[in-house]
Amino acid sequence: MIEGLAAIYIFLLAGFTGYEIIARVPVILHTPLMSGSNFVHGIVLVGAMYALGIAETTTEQVIGFFAVLLAAGNAVGGYVVTERMLEMFKSSNKPRESAGG
C-alpha cells in the first residue's frame, strides 16, 4: 500500500513527467499522442480485474464485469487506433532530424 507523503511524491512526480512529455511536441503528433495517452490510461484494466477478482456478491460481480469489459475496450481500442495512426508516419525520404517543429 502506498500512503501519505509517498503517495504525494508519486502524484507530483508523475504530474511533472506528463507535463515534460507533452511540453515540446510538434503539432504533427498531437492526435497520435492523445490517442497514445488514451491507451495508457487503459491500465485501469488492471484495477478492474482486481475489483472483479475479489468480488464476493453477485452485485459486485456484475459491476466488476462491466468494469473489466469497459477497461478492456479502452486498452485494446486505444492500442489498435494508435498503432494504425503511427503506422502512417513513414516518410518517403529519409526521416529528417526535425519535422515541422
Binding site: 508523475a14 513527467t17 506528463g18 495517452s37 488514451n38 495508457v40 485501469v44 488492471v46 484495477g47 482486481y50
Partner: peptide, 22 residues
C-alpha cells in the same frame, strides 16, 4: 490510489497532466 496500485497511479496521473497540457 484506492486500490494501492502503483501502475495505475503513475500512468493515470501522467496522462492527467499530459492531457491537461495538451
Amino acid at each position: 490510489y484506492v486500490l494501492g496500485n502503483a501502475a495505475m497511479i503513475i500512468a493515470g496521473i501522467v496522462v492527467g497532466s499530459a492531457g491537461s497540457l495538451l
